[in-house]
Amino acid sequence: MSQQSDIADAIHQRLAHGAVSVAALVREVRERWGPEHSFGSVHLFVEEVLYCLLRESDVDVACATAGDLVSWNLPADEAWEKISEHLRKMHEFLEDDDWCCLRKKHLS
């Protein structure tokens, strides 16, 4: 397995215990890689991890609004494109834990 797949699997397991923000994932990758890596390389790697995660049928993307997580209600490909576009436009590391979170889908 690739490093991206390994991290995606670990995050997927953590989702059973609660949401994980994309910003937290960025911080984790930075801690693993060290300070010499740019925001561009970290964000690109995170995009690849997210691609793996969003292929899981039970993963939902949401944002924190007034203390609640609100689903984006987007198909996986559209959610990934929205996240990727946001990360690629940034000129610094993502730090906003409310902007985008991954969580287990609420099954009805």
Rank of each mutant, 00 (worst) to 15 (best):
D9I: 11
E48V: 09
V42T: 06
A23V: 04
A23S: 11
C101D: 01
D58A: 08
D9T: 14
S71F: 04
M1H: 12
F45L: 11
S41G: 05
V61S: 01
L15Q: 02
S5N: 13
H37S: 09
E81D: 14
D60L: 01
S41A: 13
I7G: 04
F45S: 04
S41T: 11
L74E: 10
L74A: 06
L53M: 06
L69K: 06
F93I: 02
A16P: 00
Q13G: 11
G67W: 05
R14C: 07
A24G: 02
V20I: 14
G18I: 02
W80F: 11
S84A: 15
D58P: 05
F39N: 03
D96V: 08
A76D: 02
K105H: 02
Q13L: 13
H106C: 10
H17I: 07
W99Y: 12
R14E: 13
V46H: 01
E48Q: 15
E92S: 14
L102N: 00
D98R: 07
T65E: 12
V29C: 07
H43Q: 03
E85K: 14
M1A: 15
Q3S: 15
V20H: 01
D9H: 15
L94Y: 00
A23G: 02
E56K: 14
E48H: 15
S2M: 11
E92I: 04
C63F: 11
E95A: 11
Y51E: 14
V29A: 03
L44P: 01
A66W: 07
L94R: 05
W72A: 03
V22G: 00
S84I: 01
E47D: 12
F45K: 01
P75Y: 07
E28Y: 04
E92W: 06
H17E: 14
H91I: 06
E36H: 11
L50I: 02
S41F: 10
H91Y: 09
E36V: 10
D98E: 10
V22K: 00
A8R: 01
P35S: 10
V29S: 01
R30Y: 02
R55L: 13
M90Y: 01
L50M: 09
V59K: 00
D98C: 04
L102G: 01
W33A: 12
D58N: 12
G40C: 06
D96Y: 04
A16E: 14
G40I: 10
S41K: 12
C101E: 03
A76C: 07
K89P: 05
L69R: 05
L15S: 03
V29M: 08
R103W: 04
R88S: 09
A24V: 06
E85V: 12
V49M: 02
S84H: 08
E47L: 02
E56N: 08
T65W: 11
H12M: 00
V49E: 02
L69N: 06
A76W: 02
F39H: 14
S71L: 07
L107K: 09
E47T: 11
F39W: 04
H37P: 03
G18P: 04
E92V: 09
N73G: 08
I7V: 15
L102M: 07
E56S: 12
M90C: 03
S5P: 07
A62V: 08
R32A: 12
E48T: 08
K82L: 10
C52R: 14
L69Y: 03
P35F: 07
R88Q: 15
I83E: 00
S21I: 00
D60C: 03
A64C: 14
A76T: 06
E78H: 13
V49A: 01
